[in-house]
Design a protein around this nucleic acid. Structure first.
Lengths: 190, 190
DNA sequence: CATATAAGTGGAGGGTTCCTCCGTTTAGCG
DNA sequence: CGCTAAACGGAGGAACCCTCCACTTATATG
């Protein structure tokens, strides 16, 4: 389970001492707000200030800005992975569709974060793998039911969907229309 | 013609005095190199230095970093627009396909620039309109030949393709495969 | 409980980049 | 040739980055 690895990584990086852990959590919270409000270029000193923590504490927990962005990002990804379980009761195609829409919503909202982080980092890779593992059963089920062309893999699908979700300056409605086009391509027999 | 508007805008912003125009061009060149080499966060003072120009001159021509990025970006977009004319001699579907591949190549290569610029800026909007105008005839021709579903507009298509092109950390090969899926959705009858 | 100690903390400060202001220079016109 | 408006360069204050180190505190142990 890659989620386990990911979760373990997060847990491992969380300090063991009580006061340190409190500061760590406070920093993550302050960072989430600051990034949402000011973008990923938000001054780190501002984040430390909001977290009521010295700047050095921020740097000790998150040596680089990217490390901080990643940690905020990680939580969001886990939520999407969990959503895969929540749609399991639906029909194969509906389940896949519902989850992919969830991915779109999520990536759309968090694009700011995604753009700010290093795509080659371990955490980012782990997140991607986590998404693959969460989505793979849904895809395979739909393929087994002959509803989705058999020549695509889950990473193709997620990248396709995530790419569309990441399109800027568009309406909810247009995004849905574009997504529908792409998903039509998915349904088509090979 | 939106390209004309765009071009006119660029021309308008170009200084009229000979020495000023020389500096302006030198700055654009230096910026292109610096962005390619150091990313869009390249120090503006470094760009000014490379252009052999005072920092104030840079700021006078481009009040913000974004304005500078936009100006570099503009040139690239014009090249893609022109490419639409170069494929006109092909069969309808082939022409559309060829041009969309060109868009993908271009967006992929210049993602660094695209990410650095403000998607709500006038210049960016003008570029988008320019791309629409360049691509629309190709799409319409393919639709008239019943090769593309009639319920899509050029902005849908370009956003779809551009979204895929912007996907990070992937191979050329996977990108092509994903693009093929999406374009299959395009071909399908409504 | 006392206390040793390892872990954690805050903020001063040196370095870099940003961006404005203003005194000086120069292109282009009459 | 000389005038003037346009353009120029760079000094310098402010914001931010990140490291270093002297001080504080949680927790394990006797």
């Amino acid at each position: 389970m890659t989620e386990t690895t990911t979760l373990a990584e997060l847990a491992l990086r969380r300090p063991s001492r009580a006061d340190a852990r409190r500061n760590y959590d406070s920093l993550i919270g302050a960072a989430r707000n600051s990034f949402a409000e000011l973008g990923t270029e938000a001054p780190l000193e501002e984040i430390a200030r909001r977290a009521d923590v010295g700047i050095a504490t921020l740097y000790r927990n998150f040596p680089t800005r990217e490390a901080l962005i990643e940690s905020v990002y990680l939580e969001e990804v886990l939520a999407v992975c969990n959503a895969a379980g929540e749609v399991a009761h639906l029909e194969p195609w509906e389940a896949l569709l519902a989850w992919l829409r969830r991915v779109v919503t999520y990536v759309g909202a968090k694009r700011v974060l995604v753009e700010g982080l290093n795509r080659d980092s371990n955490t980012f890779k782990a997140c991607r793998l986590g998404l693959y593992e969460a989505g793979a059963p849904l895809l395979e089920r739909a393929q087994a039911a002959k509803l989705v062309r058999p020549d695509v893999a889950i990473d193709d699908v997620i990248r396709l969907v995530a790419g569309i979700a990441g399109i800027g300056s568009t309406t909810e409605e247009q995004r849905d229309r574009i997504l529908a086009i792409a998903l039509d391509g998915l349904k088509r027999a090979a």
